[in-house]
């Protein structure tokens, strides 16, 4: 039925205005947990460049792609290897425990990009003051940021070995039997979360010291790679204590992952220095150092965020 102007003007007096402009909000209000999740989700979107121009998406998506490429390649190799004749090729395909050795650079790169994006812009633009004027306080703010960074890091620490496990299992090249499969799955989950926690804590510590993203990324990279160079020099060059190697932040998280998969550690130095069968660091040292490094990095970040001045 069409509506004519005369119908509107000469109404019977029953017309009602439904749009009353701005209205008071009478709906439910969720608690601080909702605020934490809202900030974490927003930060994840920011880190991944979602809802932002395309140039912000390039680096994070590239890092994620690099982390998944070897897994895709290995699954492809297993699929294409000739039956019975491809044993040597199949031996080359690592299990999920050894997979991290192929994506070390991608994980470190992603961690050093993600954490500065999570913390620095809020401080630089002073939007932190707006966040702290919400139901969040400094601790819950930091919790949301840590959840966000940890979650996006899972994309590269948990996703690729999981994909590899599933891909190999579907082609009968994975663990033998259901219990082995579930055991490996559990190891992947624990290792992925541990790597995410460690790299999350380490990579958040440096951005907490500065409000410049580029400086924070470079600083994090320098800390992670530099610690490896310094500890290597102390242990091998200066023949210092072997346990100092546990402070090599570019290797420690991956050493921990290997122990979770009950694999021996990576060779810890040149064979001529320590011998071909020099024992790796003990698991207790690796676990202790991992906990200590994560705790110290988290404490530094918390101390810095709690001490930030807003609305002075």
């Amino acid at each position: 039925m069409s509506l004519r102007a005369s119908d509107v003007v000469a109404g019977d007096g029953n017309a009602r205005i439904f749009e009353g402009g701005y209205r008071p909000y009478r709906g439910i209000r969720l608690g601080v947990g909702h605020s934490v999740w809202a900030l974490a989700r927003h930060t994840i979107e920011r880190i991944m460049g979602l809802k932002r121009p395309a140039r912000y998406k390039v680096l994070p998506f590239l890092a994620v792609l690099i982390a998944y490429l070897p897994a895709i390649a290995f699954i492809g190799i297993v699929a294409l290897a000739p039956p019975g004749g491809g044993r040597r090729i199949l031996d080359f395909v690592p299990g999920p425990g050894r997979y991290y050795g192929f994506i070390t650079a991608a994980i470190i790169l992603f961690a050093t990009l993600a954490a500065p994006e999570a913390l620095c812009p809020d401080k630089r633009s002073r939007f932190l003051g707006v966040y702290l004027a919400s139901p969040l306080n400094r601790t819950t703010y930091l919790l949301a940021k840590a959840i966000a960074v940890g979650t996006v890091l899972l994309l590269v620490t948990l996703g690729p070995p999981l994909l590899l496990l599933i891909g190999l299992a579907l082609q009968n090249h994975g663990p033998n039997g259901f219990s082995d499969f579930m055991g490996t799955l559990g190891q992947i989950l624990v290792a992925g979360v541990s790597l995410s926690l460690m790299f999350g804590a380490i990579s958040l510590a440096v951005p907490s010291l500065t409000d410049r993203r580029a400086l924070a990324s470079a600083g994090s990279l320098l800390l992670i790679l530099g610690s490896g160079a310094i500890t290597g020099t102390v242990t091998f060059g200066l023949k210092g204590p072997r346990n100092v190697l546990a402070l090599a932040l570019n290797r420690l998280p991956f050493e921990l992952a290997l122990r979770i998969f009950t694999l021996p550690g990576l060779p810890t130095g040149p064979e001529r220095e320590f011998g071909a069968h020099s024992p790796p660091l003990s698991t207790a040292v690796v676990v202790g150092a991992s906990v200590a490094v994560t705790a110290v990095a988290a404490a530094v970040t918390w101390w810095r965020v709690v001490g930030l001045e807003v609305t002075r």
């Binding site: 209000r29 605020s35 927003h42 812009p121 939007f127 919400s134 139901p135």
Partner: peptide, 23 residues
């Protein structure tokens, strides 16, 4: 001037609404 420059106004305002407990 604290607002993130590369985010749409609607996204900023919605985000703050969520932080204050709105679904």
């Amino acid at each position: 001037d604290a607002l993130p420059p590369d985010v749409a106004a609607h996204d900023v305002v919605r985000h703050l609404a969520e932080l204050h407990g709105l679904p």
